[in-house]
């Protein structure tokens, strides 16, 4: 579904990614883990078109999309819930969700009724959002904002979802909740690429995982394989 082939990317003079490759198969949850500054978020940004890769290919559903703008890649069926959540603070929760489905809805009128079914589905997953649907998103707590960001990505009915550090800055209880949701998405057959600092939790939900070091993929394997890997154990799982 999503193939990243030897991409190089960075900001200004510093090249953060130095030839990273990975693959996400349809219906699978793939985790990307690694130390801070290893290039996980940069990989996500390069895939979704927020930065242009200097080299390499990104294939979405077999189609090369590297070098496209973020809006164009989103239209092709990739949803990216970015690091730091990035909800539209002044807009209401419901408007945030509607905008998630921007590509599928009519521009002017009747978009609310067309989106009603998907909205209900998202509200069923996140009942807390239903309670607060008229509240402006900026006033939500960190955990609620994270749920909104995931819900907004789901609204696009995407082929692939990129989830960047959904646990960032959240209390442990909320982190648990977020991972439960990821598990539910997995059961529903969602294709997911997950960047996570909590390697252990990430490995619990993932079908397959990549470990990043210094802008390259250092290790990969199923969680079971990685649990056996000496290096992995020493560095990330303690």
């Amino acid at each position: 579904m999503l193939i990243v082939d030897n991409i190089h990317a960075g900001y200004g003079t510093s090249e953060v990614l130095q030839g990273a490759s990975l693959e996400v198969q349809a219906g699978k949850v793939v985790a990307l883990i690694g130390a801070n500054g290893a290039g996980k978020t940069t990989t996500m940004r390069a895939i979704s078109g927020m930065i242009k890769p200097a080299q390499g290919r990104v294939l979405l559903n077999g189609k090369p999309v590297q070098g496209y703008g973020a809006a164009r890649i989103a239209k092709l069926g990739l949803a990216h819930a970015p690091e730091g959540r990035k909800v539209f603070g002044p807009l209401s929760v419901e408007d945030n969700l509607l905008l998630g489905a921007y590509n599928h809805l009519p521009m002017f009128f009747g978009f609310r009724s067309k989106a009603a079914h998907d909205l209900e589905k998202v509200y069923d997953i996140f009942p807390r959002l239903r309670d607060r649907k008229q509240q402006s998103a900026g006033t939500l707590s960190g955990g609620e904002q994270q749920m909104l960001a995931i819900g907004r990505a789901l609204m696009a009915n995407p082929k692939v979802i990129l989830l960047d550090e959904p646990s960032m800055g959240l209390a442990p209880v909320i982190v648990q909740e977020v991972f439960n949701i990821i598990r539910r998405l997995k059961e529903a057959g969602t294709t997911l690429l997950l960047v996570e600092q909590f390697a252990k939790s990430a490995l619990e939900v993932a079908d397959y995982a990549y470990v990043m070091e210094h802008g390259r993929i250092a290790l990969s394997g199923t969680p079971a394989e990685l649990h056996k890997n000496e290096r992995m154990l020493a560095a990330y799982l303690g």
Partner: peptide, 22 residues
Amino acid sequence: VIKAYLGIADDTDVPDVIPAVI
């Protein structure tokens, strides 16, 4: 601290040191 770093709320096999590189 170990819990916070590993993000596990109810784990039984808590390792005895936190990772060398987080």
